[in-house]
Design a protein around this nucleic acid. Structure first.
Lengths: 318, 318
DNA sequence: CCCGATGATGCTCATATGAGCACGGCAGCC
DNA sequence: GGCTGCCGTGCTCATATGAGCATCATCGGG
């Protein structure tokens, strides 16, 4: 009767088929009989309905992941792994979910790391809290950047490392040094000190690293802790800094933003991080999109744990 | 290791399985191998994920229907059929969707009605517009309540009936009478007139009816058309009226709200409607929830076409 | 008017899935 | 300590589904 019904009528049929299949869970055969079409046509309409987005299948769970994005990211940035959690509807607390995911990933990591190098920060605190007891057996947790002395708040760097170690049935090795020193001579001297040098050596030999990143603005933990003044940060931004990784400020290409400052920063170098077999980078929130891009594109990490919006931003052609 | 993992860990596994199955579309077998569980366990976790609402399957289409609600409504109110469309996200234009659905239903109705009795109103105008050409062959469309003379706007009662008839390859029979008369004697006289009596007789013999309902407030078409004053309506509400059906005001139990007024109303009686084999009631929008309830519970219709929120309201225990 | 290309349809067959069942471990109870 | 009933597990088998292929109608170009 009507000729070109492939547009309108076929779509309507698709809807009908999809309803019967998913809402009523009839079999494709029954649907065929019911609508007077063959089983195969019903099946094809169903695929069509799924492809065209008429049928939307969503996995709703705080710990759900976005596997599609993960694959794309792995391919695009040559990562060993990527873990992407859906954005929460109630914005902002995506850090918690990402931290949870990072904890899950760490707990499931095989082989279980013997020595784990960690940085510190708000995000990592949450990761530590989310780690289950017994996530590893006899792990040594080594701090890879300084800052231990300036922990004012509870749940600071030391506590965090201790938590991770304790739940992994091992011990924490703290880096007894400020993050950034005022004079380069002091930095050289402290690095030469046995207690510091030993820790740095252990850090360099870690079997895996876990770290996050900070944004280059006044809200940074480095500013809050008094290592840098807001003016210092402004100057860094002028030099191209987008954020910091293990205490070191990098520009959009992943290079050191201010070599002078970097010389005064105690901790693992970025090159060690780049050559690591396993470097897990945890980052959440839209303010960190720029640092995240810098880290991921410059090969600082092998594993990315983040949220959906960050992932999408990374995948956009820039 | 951990004992009671059925809560937490099983749910997480479910999520993982669901992701692999729906996002990655792996087979249950593959998933089993991947997660180190048996194919059957994977399958069971999947069912669990679906049941517990972790997996949400939604059919997104303007013409989609809510088959679950439809079944419940049919069972609860002994309807021959119910058609429920999803609520639109962008509130308010649910009338259009419902009208579309009603048109679809009418077009698919078997046996094709020979004589269709219709009321009029905003909703029915939309239904008429949504009807496809050739929805029937040689149908006679009869108006079942008066009002033809007072159509100011285009797309009024007459046009609507004509549209339905034309697209169904038949003719319209209009009821040449006001909806409500001022004196009961006039009403008796006009009903006795051959031209009116004939139409009413045809209306009573219709093989199917299609009608909507109005709310008992000042926005009613009957007020707009000048048959009633806002004060009349206030008085009706005082008497328990919740809305009107084919021009007759009913209370929450489906009884005539004001017998005096009803005596002066020209058109098919409610008892004829109640005894009809097919009475399709089209209603949309939250303002009509009360009338809808009255109509459905008092058995005025055999088929309900409406929206999701109305359906849910009807199914609530009141 | 005929021919080949294209796309839809319905088939065969291999595979994936779900229902029902038997087994084994575990907790509670005697 | 042994018994019993229950739950979780993995099996068998019937059924549902999807991939690939032959067929057929339709359409545009010689």
């Amino acid at each position: 009767m009507v000729r070109v019904m492939s547009d309108e009528s076929d779509e309507l049929l698709s809807v009908r088929v999809a309803e019967l299949y998913y809402d009523e869970n009839k079999t494709q055969d029954e649907i065929g009989a019911l609508l007077g079409i063959s089983r195969w046509k019903a099946g094809r309409l169903l695929t069509q309905a799924r492809d065209s987005g008429i049928v939307r299948i969503e996995i709703v769970h705080p710990r759900a992941r976005r596997l599609g994005l993960e694959r794309e990211l792995q391919a695009r940035f040559a990562l060993t792994d990527a873990v992407i959690v859906p954005d929460p509807e109630s914005e902002a607390d995506s850090t918690t979910r990402v931290a949870q995911a990072a904890a899950d990933y760490l707990a499931g990591l095989r082989p279980v790391p013997r020595v784990l190098g960690v940085s510190w920060g708000r995000t990592l605190n949450e990761v530590a809290d989310a780690l289950p007891d017994g996530w590893a057996t006899g792990v040594t947790v080594v701090q890879i950047n300084g800052g231990v002395s300036l922990n004012r708040r509870p749940g600071g760097a030391a506590t965090m490392a201790a938590t991770i170690a304790q739940r992994g049935g091992g011990q924490a090795v703290l880096l007894p040094s400020p993050a950034i020193l005022e004079r380069i001579e002091t930095k050289r001297a402290i690095e030469a000190d046995r207690t510091v040098a030993d820790v740095l050596a252990q850090a360099a030999a870690a079997s895996a690293y876990l770290y996050s990143a900070g944004v280059a603005d006044a809200s940074s933990v480095l500013v809050e802790s008094g290592y840098l003044t807001p003016d210092d940060v402004t100057e860094l931004v002028r030099k191209g800094a987008v954020g910091d990784v293990v205490g070191r400020y990098i520009d959009a290409d992943g290079n050191i933003a201010d070599p002078g400052l970097d010389e005064r920063t105690v901790g693992l170098g970025l090159s060690e991080l780049r050559s690591a077999a396993t470097a897990i980078f945890v980052v959440a929130g839209s303010s960190k999109h720029d640092v995240a891009r810098a880290v991921v594109t410059s090969g600082l990490c092998t594993v990315l744990v983040s949220d959906e919006s960050t992932a999408r931003t990374l995948l956009e052609d820039r």
